[in-house]
Amino acid sequence: MQELINGLVSGSIYVLFATGLTIVLGILDIPNFVHGETFMIGAFTAFFLVAGLGVHFILATIIAMLIVAVIGVVVEKISFKPLRGAPHVTLLISAIAMMLFLENLASLLWGNYNRTIDSPYTKQVVSFLGSTVSSQRLLVVLMAVLLIIALQLFIKKTKLGMAIRAMGQNPEVTQLMGVSIDRLTSFIFALSAALSAVAGSFLGSLFTLNPHMGLEPLLKGVVILVLGGMGSIVGAIVGGLGLGLVESYTAQYLTSAFKNSVAFLILIIILVIKPTGLFGQGGDQH
């Protein structure tokens, strides 16, 4: 039971993280490796709001989302906009440059030690289906579910969401329909960065945060992307929760030392059997 809850909690953080990664890759065709760093900055912003200004955890998370959304737009303008249409490898290296820059800037500014975001719910405990869980963990799962539902509704029901879907299918025609590609790209980056910031803030409240926390979720996000298919939000949900559960059960019953290897072993087996990913839809033209 405890494994199920652990898996769901880390799974929902993965889902939030991977959704942001997948919309940028699926719609804009950009491998945004800076995602791990916006995740880290989101966690630090929430931390400083809570620890420095005494803001409530939920409010701090929302403010962090807004601030990091702006950072996401700036990252897009600096690292990706000048290279629009370049091959994946070039974009990837540009992202790696930004990633190294932000990571090292953070470690210069804030120091290389672990912190934890204080939340009023951490110490409260509820009993749930026969085992005890802290309310903070329930809150994380609940908010993840709400955010993902809201995102799905937004993309499926609103006009802006329609523009985003259209752009994923055919950017040129979308532009002909009167949509500004530049502004839409910025918006998608803002959305994606905001999602990574929530994930960061949640992770920082449950575990610890430090300037180098971005790499591991990035690696996991890559696995989820392949498991769930590039650009598919439903795929990111299934992949994220699946990965969370697999990790939680292997940590319990096999070993926790090879946690990352298990994820990547699954990825390699899937890609070897089906070289374009589970729900592969191209993506290998580059």
């Binding site: 994946h88 696995v223 992307l225 990352n260 990547f264 070897v272 070289p275 993506g283 033209q285």
Partner: peptide, 15 residues
């Protein structure tokens, strides 16, 4: 595998 999938598989091998 090809393209970005090859990059991910080899990243996995490295990890």
């Amino acid at each position: 595998t090809r393209g970005i999938y090859f990059a991910m598989v080899t990243l996995g091998l490295g990890v």
